[in-house]
Design a protein around this nucleic acid. Structure first.
Lengths: 351, 351
DNA sequence: CGAATATTCGCAATCGATTACCCCCGATTT
DNA sequence: AAATCGGGGGTAATCGATTGCGAATATTCG
C-alpha cells in the first residue's frame, strides 16, 4: 500500500538509510543541513515510522496489557479509563483482556500478552486464581507488573489498592454513630484479600466500640442482588435481628433494601444499610445508598504512574505498594439525622 | 531473556531455520519425521512464535483498534466486551482508544492505530466529528472499518446499529397505548444520525396515531440528569402540559421523574415516561424506568463478525449495514395497567 | 543400471529500522 | 609536508520469521 520507508527517502536523496534513520532520531553525527533536508522530505513524503519494525528491533512494543474479570463492570472500566488516560500521552497503547474470573483464562491471557511482547501488565487477579506460576513467569521475563484492587502478595510486584480495612471500618463506625447496635455483615469470598480486609475492618470497628460479635450476623454472599435478598431474609428471622448492615457489595445491599421495603421495614429508621463500590445506580435508588467510593479512575492513573516509574527505573525493580484512601459517601440508606423532612433529591451527580 | 527462536531449534537439530519454520507451519514439503521432531523439540524448548516478527513480515498484526468516546460508559464498555469475546477465539487482540467526543482526538487516535498496523478498526464516531478525511485514509489503506451505534454514511464502510427509528416509534406507540395524548420529546443533537432517527420515529408515531405535534413539546437536552430536570420544568409550565415524555436518554428521563415526584405529579398516573439505553440504574429507580435496550453486547459481537467476514473476503470490500432490533423494556414509569397493586419489586436482573 | 521424477531441505532475500564499526576527507598541529 | 583529529556518513549485521528458487538425495520406472 501507501508505505513510505526510510529506504524510499534515502533513494530520493541519494544517501544511505542509516543517515536517514540518524537524521530522524536527531543523532549528532548528522550535519544540520542533512538532517533538515531529511526531515523536510520525510514530511513531504508522509513518512511514518513503522511501529512493528521498531518494536522487533528494540524489543519494546509500546503497548501494555490490562487483565480484568469483565470489562463492562463500572469499576473496572473506570480503572481502565484511568490507565488509558495516563498512558496515552506517553505513547502507550492499551490492550484489554477479560478473564471472566477464570484462572485458566487468566493464564492464557497472560501468555498471549507476554507473547505479544507488551511492555507491562496491569491486572486484577481472578477470583479463582490459586496457583501463581504464570505471574512468576511475567517477572522472570522482566515485564513490569502492577496489581490493582485485587492483588496477590508476591515480592517484586507493585500494587495499587484502596484501604479496604479502613473503608470497612469507616462504614461500620458510621453505622454505629447512627445508633446501630447490632450490625450484620455481608461477607465476600475470603480468598480475596479485599474481602478479608473488609471483614477484619468490620471486626475491628465492633471491637473498638464494644459491640458484640456474632457469627449469626455474618452472611456469605456473592455480589448479586438476589444473594442480598436471601441474606437479609435469613437475618431478619433471627430472634434478635440486626439494625445495621455493612455489605461488601452494592448489589447485595440493594437486594437487602428491596426486601426490607417490601416487608415494611424502614430504611434507615429500622435498619441502616451501607454498600461498597459506588456503583452508579446507588445514587438513584430510594433511599439513595450509602457506599464506598473506590476512586477507580484515580486508581487507574496511579497504577499507570507506578508502571511509568518502573519503566524509567530501567533495570532496578521497584516494588511499590500504593494504598489509596477510600471515600465514604453517606447517603439516605444510613442517614438518620433528618431523613423525615429531607426531600430525597440529592446525591445526584451529573453524567 | 528467555527467548527461544527458530534458530535455536535449528542449531540444536542441525537443520536450517527454514525447515523449522516450515515444520511448525505444517508445510507439506517437510517429511513427517522431521516435522514431528521439530514440533517435539520446539515444545521441549518452550518455543513461542515471535508475534512482532511475524507481524512485520506479514503486515498483519492480529490486533484491532476500538474507538469510543469514553470507555467507562456502560453502553460502550458492553459493546467492547462483545467485540473482545467474539474476536478472542480468533486470535485477535483488542486495543482501546478514547476520543472524549473530540474530533481532533479521534483523528489522532486513528493515526496511531493505522501506524500500529491494526488489522481493523471499530468506531463510534465522536459527536463533534464533521470532516471525515481521516476515515477516508483508513479506507485507502485498506483497513477494514466497522461503525457501531454512531455512524457516518460513507460508502465502503460497514456498520452495526440498532433501529433507532423503530425504537422511538415503539416507545411513543407504547405511551399512546397507555392513554397519553400529549407526548413530549427530549431530543438529542440532530448532528448525530441516531438522534435524528429517534426524532423522526417520534414524529411518525404521532402522525400515525393522529396526535397533534407541537414545537413546544420538543426540548433539546444533553444527556445529563439536570438537563432533564430543567426540560420537564419548562414543559410543565405550558398551558397544556404533556402527559407523556419520550426521552432519548435515561439520564434526562431520570431528571424528569425526580422533578415530577418532587412536585407531587405522579408517574405514571399523571405523566408516563420512557428513556433510552437501559442504563443499569433504570431497573432500580422508583418507579422502575421504561427504556430501550440497545443490546450492546450483541452489537459488539455482530460488529466483530462483520469484521471477520471482511477479513475472510480478502480483497473484495463488502459493505454490510446491520440494523439490530431494539428491545422495548416496559417498566413502571409508563405502565398504567395496574401500577397500584403491583408490588414494585421486579425487573431486577441479577448481576 | 541410468534416467526421470519426487521428496526433502538449504540459501538467501525480505519485512523496516537501528547501530557498531569503519572510512574518507578537510583542517589543524608540529 | 607528514601526522593527527574529528566531523559526517556509509556498510552491513541484527531483530525473528517466512518463502521463492534451487539443490541434493531418494525413489521409481523403463
Amino acid at each position: 500500500m501507501n508505505k513510505v520507508t526510510i529506504y524510499d527517502i534515502s533513494k530520493k536523496l541519494n544517501i544511505s538509510a542509516a543517515t536517514v534513520s540518524r537524521a530522524l532520531n536527531n543523532n549528532p553525527k548528522i550535519s544540520i543541513k542533512t538532517r533538515e533536508l531529511v526531515l523536510r522530505t520525510a514530511a513531504e513524503m508522509n513518512y511514518e515510522q513503522n511501529t512493528l519494525a521498531l518494536a522487533l528491533k528494540s524489543g519494546k512494543s509500546h503497548t501494555v496489557g490490562i487483565l480484568v474479570p469483565y470489562m463492562d463492570r463500572s469499576f473496572f472500566s473506570s480503572v481502565i479509563r484511568g490507565i488509558e488516560e495516563e498512558l496515552y500521552p506517553h505513547g502507550y497503547r492499551v490492550i484489554i483482556c477479560q478473564t471472566r474470573d477464570d484462572a485458566q483464562s487468566e493464564v492464557q491471557n497472560i501468555n498471549t500478552l507476554l507473547n505479544a511482547q507488551v511492555d507491562g501488565i496491569f491486572m486484577s487477579v481472578s477470583k479463582t486464581t490459586k496457583d501463581t506460576s504464570h505471574i512468576d513467569r511475567v517477572l522472570q521475563k522482566g515485564v513490569p507488573l502492577v496489581f490493582f484492587d485485587r492483588k496477590k502478595n508476591i515480592k517484586g510486584v507493585s500494587s495499587v489498592t484502596i484501604d479496604d480495612f479502613s473503608a470497612a471500618y469507616m462504614s461500620v463506625e458510621h453505622l454505629i454513630r447512627q445508633g446501630c447496635k447490632r450490625i450484620a455483615h455481608f461477607k465476600g469470598d475470603i480468598h480475596l484479600e479485599i474481602y478479608k480486609d473488609r471483614y477484619e475492618g468490620y471486626l475491628k470497628a465492633l471491637e473498638d466500640y464494644n459491640l458484640p460479635f456474632s457469627e449469626d450476623y455474618v452472611v456469605q454472599i456473592n455480589s448479586k442482588v438476589v444473594s442480598g435478598t436471601a441474606a437479609v431474609k435469613k437475618l431478619m428471622q433471627l430472634p434478635s435481628p440486626p439494625d445495621g448492615i455493612f455489605s461488601v457489595s452494592d448489589f447485595t445491599a440493594l437486594g437487602a433494601i428491596q426486601y426490607l421495603k417490601k416487608s415494611g421495614i424502614r430504611v434507615p429508621e429500622d435498619v441502616c444499610i451501607s454498600g461498597f463500590s459506588n456503583e452508579s445506580f446507588t445514587q438513584y435508588t430510594e433511599p439513595t445508598m450509602t457506599t464506598i467510593d473506590q476512586t477507580p479512575i484515580k486508581m487507574g492513573k496511579t497504577s499507570a504512574r507506578v508502571f511509568l516509574e518502573q519503566i524509567e527505573a530501567e533495570t532496578v525493580v521497584i516494588e511499590k505498594k500504593v494504598v489509596l484512601p477510600p471515600q465514604l459517601l453517606i447517603r439516605d440508606s444510613s442517614d438518620r439525622r433528618n431523613h423525615r423532612d429531607t426531600p430525597r433529591f440529592h446525591g445526584i451527580k451529573s453524567f
